[in-house]
């Protein structure tokens, strides 16, 4: 199994979960990550800089048409939906989906269409059902699905919604997510992108 992209969705409690994950990701982790963390429409660069302090990989706020490079983490900018085309990002200011912009479902659905089986989707802690439909679509297109164990989540609503929406491949506690991703992406390392 090889993966070209990992998409991650987080809401309430996501800051700590993402910090823990980014801190654990090794600096030679090659598969790029695209992340939606629900946030206020006026929030500035603080989220990125706080997360960057924890991370060894470079973190960017995705810009329109930005190429997706290996070994990088991309955050959805505030007040935009983040979408994926094959090899690059696209943005949209369409209305909120699941009361959220950026919405996790929008990222996951577009990524599933672009990457199909070469996509890994991760749903973390949160208080909404955003991401559940998107994760089901990733699964339907042959991608791999991972959900944070609700018991280890600051807010279990979002992981539970994802688990209810599809047959999730891996349900693991927060601290085991990076070891799992590393294992799942091992062949991607050798093949490269």
């Amino acid at each position: 199994m090889t993966f070209d992209l990992i998409v991650v969705g987080a809401s309430l409690g996501g800051l700590h979960a993402l910090e823990a994950i980014f801190a654990a990701l090794p600096s030679d982790f090659i598969v790029p990550l695209a992340v939606v963390q629900h946030r206020h429409r006026d929030s500035d660069d603080t989220l990125r800089s706080v997360l960057q302090r924890a991370a060894r990989l470079p973190i960017y706020e995705a810009e329109d048409k930005q190429p997706i490079e290996p070994g990088a983490i991309y955050l959805a900018p505030a007040d935009y939906h983040l979408l994926v085309e094959r090899g690059s990002f696209a943005l949209s200011t369409e209305g909120p989906v699941n009361h959220a912009r950026p919405s996790i479902d929008v990222l996951f659905e577009s990524a599933a269409a672009a990457y199909e089986a070469r996509l890994l989707g991760v749903v973390l802690t949160g208080a909404s059902a955003d991401g559940a439909q998107g994760l089901a679509l990733i699964k339907a297109r042959g991608g791999c699905t991972v959900v944070q164990d609700p018991a280890s989540a600051e807010c279990r609503v979002m992981p539970e919604a994802a688990i209810a929406a599809t047959t999730v491949d891996h349900v693991v506690p927060l601290i085991e997510i990076v070891p799992l991703l590393t294992k799942l992406c091992q062949s991607s390392w050798k093949v490269g992108l």
């Binding site: 979408l83 994926v84 696209a90 949209s92 369409e94 929008v106 659905e109 577009s110 672009a114």
Partner: peptide, 9 residues
């Protein structure tokens, strides 16, 4: 038009 967001609409 950019395909990803166009598809959604």
């Amino acid at each position: 038009y950019a395909l990803a967001s166009l598809k959604r609409r």
